[in-house]
């Protein structure tokens, strides 16, 4: 892991994205978009990009990538759009059936509260 703890690295978030803080309007990534790497990390790459490519060897959701990188989701989305624009990853949305309906979520919530 490149970042073992919060604020334990000298690089600031805006340097990771060259100052961009919001993703473009046509950004295809939402929280549950599955990302798959299309190539291996190459030397000279930004370390976050390399980490993303290593993580997404199998389909991984954007939130999971953000959690693993310990970066805010917005920043992760910007990094991912860079990789997508370069053709290094591909993204697809999970099928609708994969999202459980609200009843199931409610039951899960009740169950969690009863723990």
């Amino acid at each position: 892991m490149s970042r073992p703890g919060r604020d334990d690295a000298p690089d600031r978030l805006y340097t990771l994205t060259q100052g961009r803080s919001r993703s473009g309007p046509d950004n295809p990534f939402d929280l549950v978009t599955l990302v798959v790497a299309e190539c291996d990390p190459v030397p000279g790459m930004q370390s976050e990009h390399a980490a993303i490519l290593r993580l997404t060897g199998r389909p991984t959701a954007v939130v999971e990538i953000a959690a693993e990188l310990e970066l805010p989701v917005s920043i992760t989305r910007i990094l991912l759009s860079d990789l997508l624009a370069a053709g290094r990853v591909s993204a697809r949305h999970p099928r609708k059936a994969a999202v459980p309906d609200l009843d199931i979520l409610e039951q899960v919530l009740v169950g969690l509260r009863n723990l």
Binding site: R6, Y14, E70, P72
Partner: peptide, 28 residues
């Protein structure tokens, strides 16, 4: 800077994040 980094993790609104990054830059 540590505070700002924590806030950047906490606030996911892009507007707030942009402001926080701006502050972060100034503070740095």
């Amino acid at each position: 800077l540590a505070d700002l980094r924590a806030m950047e993790d906490k606030h996911h609104d892009e507007e707030v994040l942009a402001d926080l990054l701006h502050l972060d830059h100034r503070t740095a």
